[in-house]
Design a protein around this nucleic acid. Structure first.
Lengths: 208, 208
DNA sequence: CGCCCGTTTGGCAGTCACTGCCAAACTGCT
DNA sequence: AGCAGTTTGGCAGTGACTGCCAAACGGGCG
């Protein structure tokens, strides 16, 4: 705060950025702690701001809304998903590609414990669930242009158009649905086993 | 409102019930109208209440929240789903059963036009989408006990327990995902064609 | 017919998430 | 040190939603 303007850096660039990152982390940690302690709905944004040492207004500038305070790099999900799948060879099977995307997203979590806490919160809080599902749907839309061509190539492949559109949506949505089912089961088992294995199992059950 | 206490009945029972139903309809109609005219987010509950001729407080007593004002008998969805599927013979294939459930729910809409309006609103409004997806998930949970046994019977069927749980969830979620993909495509085509056909196409794309 | 009881309604105030707006504090550069 | 651009914090406002309490109303009773 005072003195010591010389950069004891090691961080990204300007002091602002470092402070910002620090505050951001503090807010996220405080939020996750309070959420797990009192529950999501019972925790007010004002309380998080107070305990994190920032004004409510600033908190809302850092994060768009209460839901974002769950953390877990949810904003990166979209980018990671499209990047991972986009980087795959064009003739990769759709399901293989989607599995790779799911795996990449799961790797984003810092620790198994935090992931478990987040998922538990997510699956037990209606409002959070709603928000997550909505975000998921957005990712799904973003993924569409990457999935459509692969689907057309593999399937008997009639032209493009609305028909392929619906099918691509269904395929991506199914992958996400399996991820959700898997993560629910994973939470039920208190984080025992590998989430990806559960995902495979779910997908197998669906695709018979 | 005044005089005419003699029952020109024909309705269910007491005057209260009839008034209630009338007000309910008025509110729902007003809401759908305003939503389509101005958009969901731009319409305030206060405005709906004013134009429907009830107090805001009463409106919230009739319907739990703004989302319910979309109507379409969403509350019955759960019941219809479980009843339809529950009434099917125990050895019915899971996918057949789920298809029947989906068909029953689709039959719930009064008119094609209203269904289209509702779906369009649903797919273009983030907040509504979120709410719908959350409700969908609740139906999914309700359906689980009906789906699990059929899945165990058909599939190689190891024991019961958490394993089947995840798979059942995945299967039901997939069916719903296909319904969503289908309804999105249906809206894109301005209600042309049969929704169920699109559903079948989506499911075929998934189960390849 | 009129009266009382239970239900329903409406208004009011309050909570909570979230958003502009504006002045004050601060950082980075010269 | 000083200037300019950015960030912050407080304040007021909106909109959904919830208790609370008094007033209005419908239905059954004498």
């Amino acid at each position: 705060m005072t003195g010591d303007t010389r950069a004891t850096t090691g961080g990204p660039a300007t002091l602002w950025d470092r402070t910002r990152q620090l505050a951001s982390r503090e807010i996220l940690d405080t939020a996750l702690r309070l959420f797990t302690e009192q529950g999501y709905d019972a925790t007010t944004v004002a309380q998080i701001a107070r305990e994190a040492g920032v004004s409510q207004r600033t908190l809302f500038r850092y994060f768009g809304g209460k839901e974002e305070l769950l953390g877990g790099g949810q904003e990166r999900f979209g980018a990671v998903l499209t990047e991972t799948i986009g980087a795959l060879p064009a003739d990769t099977d759709v399901w293989t590609a989607l599995r790779a995307g799911v795996a990449a997203v799961l790797d984003l979590h810092d620790s198994r414990d935090q992931a478990l806490r987040r998922f538990r919160l997510l699956h037990t809080t209606a409002s959070l669930r709603a928000g997550w599902l909505e975000k998921r749907l957005r990712f799904q839309e973003e993924l569409l242009p990457l999935v459509e061509p692969r689907l057309a190539a593999a399937g008997g492949a009639t032209d493009g158009g609305a028909r392929t559109d619906a099918r691509a949506r269904a395929v991506v949505a199914t992958a996400f649905a399996c991820l959700d089912a898997a993560s629910m089961a994973w939470v039920d088992r208190d984080g025992e086993g590998e989430l990806l294995d559960l995902y495979d199992e779910c997908l197998a059950a669906v695709r018979g």
